[in-house]
């Protein structure tokens, strides 16, 4: 379980997060929604230790993640698929995947096999350099590279960005299936509120760095004001 308490982050004079609190539990998808610049990416980067907060705390289970280096947070079983996917273009598909498995206790050969079974398109391209992959293939690779380490927590930053509607919808179904079958704690950051709310159990809405609403996904999805002013779901 991930618990964020009263978290504040500043980039110099810019306050990117203001007293944000939220909880994400195993087996559930917690969607974090909001417009451009709402602070969604900053929230995930702070959880992963890439950004230091000015106040508040973050816990994974009973362990505080504050001031812990990013690589050690990962080794606790937290996988973060960053905005833009973070595929290393100069490496092959297989080397990207192997890299994902190195820090864990997972047997690399078995891990690769499991991911190729899950994403056959990656198996077909295992020797290809990632610069040649399409957007959808990169997203698959980023997911597989996160999953190969068998994490407990999965942070996803706008996985649907740039994907065709059909691919997005398949991806969302996959995320839900993984979350439930592996009892993953998923924090799903999306601008695509409609797609995210369809699979999420809980939702948090950010606006200018502050939480303006949170609760179960259905309630958030049904709130006319939220839909109109923060989620862009009403024309």
């Amino acid at each position: 379980m991930i618990r964020v308490d009263d978290l504040s982050v500043s980039y110099g004079a810019v306050k990117a997060l203001r007293n944000v609190s939220l909880e994400a539990s195993p087996g559930l998808i917690t969607a974090v929604l909001g417009a451009n610049g709402a602070g969604k990416t900053t929230l995930l980067r702070t959880i992963s230790g890439l950004v230091n907060p000015v106040g508040g705390d973050i816990h994974l289970g009973d362990t505080s993640l504050l001031r812990m280096p990013t690589e050690e947070i990962c080794r606790l079983g937290l996988a973060h698929v960053p905005e833009g996917r973070g595929v290393i273009e100069e490496l092959t598909v297989e080397d990207n995947l192997r890299l994902g498995a190195l820090a864990s206790k997972v047997d690399i050969a078995e891990g690769l096999e499991a991911q190729y079974a899950q994403f056959p398109a990656l198996g077909d391209r295992r020797k290809k350099y990632c610069a040649t992959l399409s957007g959808g293939e990169r997203q698959m690779l980023a997911m597989a590279r996160a999953l190969i380490a068998q994490p407990r927590v999965l942070l996803l930053d706008e996985p649907s960005l740039g994907l065709a509607p059909q691919v997005t919808s398949d991806l969302m179904k996959l995320i839900l299936r993984l979350c439930e079958s592996k009892n993953l704690t998923v924090i799903l950051v999306e601008q695509n509120a409609k797609g995210a709310l369809r699979i999420a159990h809980n939702a948090v809405v950010l606006h200018l760095g502050a939480v303006v609403a949170s609760g179960d996904a259905q309630t958030v999805a049904a709130d006319e004001d939220l839909r109109r002013y923060y989620l862009g779901l009403v024309e």
Partner: peptide, 15 residues
Amino acid sequence: RASALAPEVARLLGV
């Protein structure tokens, strides 16, 4: 190689 090419991504992967 990963640390040289993409240090931040490498960190996120536990390197």
